[in-house]
């Protein structure tokens, strides 16, 4: 019963026609069929947040949705943040400035969650940022620099408020 079915996925504004087995997770299809390997896969049980993508602008776990379910929705992966843009986004630049990435495994999920947060709430305080990021695990435990980077973009840098 490994019958494949055709699915049109809209990822970063582009349409991809792929053949998928219903049991294939969106995270795997994004990586292996579409070839966008910026989306990372960690725990496959929704805990770690590495596979977080935006679906219709909201952060969701791509390991907890089947690719067949994603048809008709706008998917944004980390590659989409700089699609057709020469430079990093201000958030990505802030991550670089604050050394907010170490091994890089959690970075795509962190960037997408923080991008969605800043989209819905441009000036979150530290508490809100930590709450929003609670579903993204950094295995290097480098949370402080990640929060600092997001605070810079939120215009509420810690240095300034001290």
């Amino acid at each position: 019963m490994s019958t494949k079915m055709p699915v049109n996925l809209t990822i970063n504004g582009e349409t991809f026609n792929v053949e998928v087995e219903p049991r294939w997770l969106l995270s795997d299809v994004i990586r292996h069929q579409v070839g966008l390997i910026g989306t990372h896969v960690g725990c496959e049980q929704g805990v770690c947040g590495a596979c977080t993508v935006l679906i219709d602008g909201k952060p969701e776990r791509s390991c907890l949705i089947f690719a067949v379910q994603a048809q008709g929705h706008q998917i944004t992966t980390v590659e989409g943040l700089t699609q057709n843009k020469p430079d990093l986004t201000p958030l990505q630049q802030a991550f670089q400035n604050h050394h907010a990435l170490q091994c890089g495994y959690c970075t795509p999920g962190m960037l997408l969650t923080a991008t969605a947060l800043l989209e819905t709430e441009p000036h979150p305080n530290e508490h809100r940022i930590r709450e929003a990021l609670s579903g993204n695990v950094c295995r290097c435990t480098g949370y402080q620099f990640i929060v600092d980077a997001i605070l810079e973009v939120a215009g509420d840098s810690k240095e300034a408020s001290r």
Partner: peptide, 9 residues
């Protein structure tokens, strides 16, 4: 309930 990404779905 869970985390933001879980609550969204």
């Amino acid at each position: 309930i869970g985390h933001w990404a879980i609550r969204n779905r």
